[in-house]
Amino acid sequence: MMVWNSFSDFLAMGGYGLYVWGSVGATALLMLAEPIIVARRNSALKTQLQRQFNAERADRGERKARRSQA
């Protein structure tokens, strides 16, 4: 079953195009943006933590090396 005769019919939504597409647009925008923002924040956190851990490990390694030199 198909309710639309043409693509422009579909876009017009029987004269309610602005309202229907305004709703669809906002919903799509937010529901796409939210997971992207969360994913970005998570990966930023991961790299920040990794950098911090690596620095700490390097720091420890350096100290150990200095101690063994002395």
Binding site: M13, G14, G15, Y16, Y19, V20, S23, V24, T27
Partner: peptide
């Protein structure tokens, strides 16, 4: 009419 289709998101 077609305006009710907002229901599927609302």
């Amino acid at each position: 009419g077609e305006g009710y289709r907002i229901i599927f998101l609302h």
